[in-house]
Nucleic acid binder design. Structure first.
Length: 274
DNA sequence: ATGGTGGACGCTCCA
């Protein structure tokens, strides 16, 4: 039994629906997790997703900013939308998918706050918000459901590039929000204390560079190649042996009117798991 | 050292 899931910060789902449709036609993951949909639930382009074979959805949107969504070929149940930091932001949605009988997986889809420019929580409330948000994410691993036969996948734009090989220049980005020690250490600590597995790094060793985001502000993003790995796919330990592949679709950054993030897809062969 | 681009919204915020 195979199962595949894509995470993609789409930076306006309405504007980029044609790209999404092309992607779904080409890759057809079972589940698609989007971030920065930037539209209210009422204006989410659900009809186009249904037409593409994605009849099931868990949407958590808001006007103009943020917004996350899970689209699925398979039924979704136990949909949950959480207000991290109690600010009314739409930055989380989760749901259970059951790729085969008895194999339940809760998918958590996150859009972590970017954190502003100044990496000091004392003077920059956006950075303080980011750190507080991470602290709340830390609690996920303790949830009863995870110990009651439900596996977990956590994806999204986490807005942190934790490893030296997750950025174009470790040295030059040490004081740049997304790669500061407080952020990278916190993220890696959440990962290890929660027994999460970084599936992208299971498949692509830490010795190799991986980028999932390239700034719009570069003159020539491809030539400069100053990317960062801001998008992630984690799982509970029980799912890791079932990982079959990870694909980072870098070509998507070169599509017409692209998102600044590219889609990342994990494929599983569930029979090989415990 | 600075400003560069892109999206939503509505004359500015956020990334």
């Amino acid at each position: 039994m195979s199962f595949s899931l894509t995470t993609w910060n789409i930076n306006s789902v309405r504007l980029r629906m044609p790209l999404v449709q092309d992607f779904l036609k080409a890759k057809g993951p079972d589940v698609l997790c989007l971030q920065e949909t930037k539209c209210e639930n009422d204006s989410f382009p659900m009809a186009a997703f249904r037409k593409a074979g994605y009849e099931h959805a868990a949407i958590h949107g808001q006007k103009g900013y943020h917004g996350v969504a899970i689209l699925s070929k398979l039924p979704l149940s136990m949909i949950d939308r959480r207000d991290y930091c109690n600010m009314g932001d739409s930055r989380h949605v989760s749901a259970i998918v059951e790729p085969e009988k008895g194999r339940r997986i809760r998918v958590h889809n996150f859009y972590v706050p970017a954190g502003g420019d100044e990496p000091d929580p004392e003077i920059n409330p956006k950075f303080a918000h980011k750190l507080k948000f991470l602290d709340e994410m830390r609690l996920l691993h303790a949830e009863a459901e995870r110990h009651a036969g439900v596996s977990t996948i956590l994806v999204g734009d986490l807005n942190i590039a934790p490893l030296e090989t997750d950025v174009w220049s470790h040295k030059q980005l040490l004081k740049v929000v997304s790669h500061t020690p407080i952020e990278t250490e916190t993220l890696l600590d959440i990962q290890s204390s929660g027994a999460w597995v970084d599936l992208m790094r299971e498949f692509i060793p830490p010795s190799e560079k991986i980028y999932t985001w390239w700034s719009y502000r570069a003159k020539d993003w491809k030539a400069a190649n100053r990317g960062r790995r801001l998008d992630h796919i984690w799982s509970s330990a029980d799912l890791a042996p079932a990982l079959a592949s990870i694909e980072v679709l870098g070509a998507a950054r070169g599509w017409e009117r692209p998102s600044d993030h590219v889609p990342v897809t994990a494929a599983f062969q569930l029979r090989t798991a415990q």
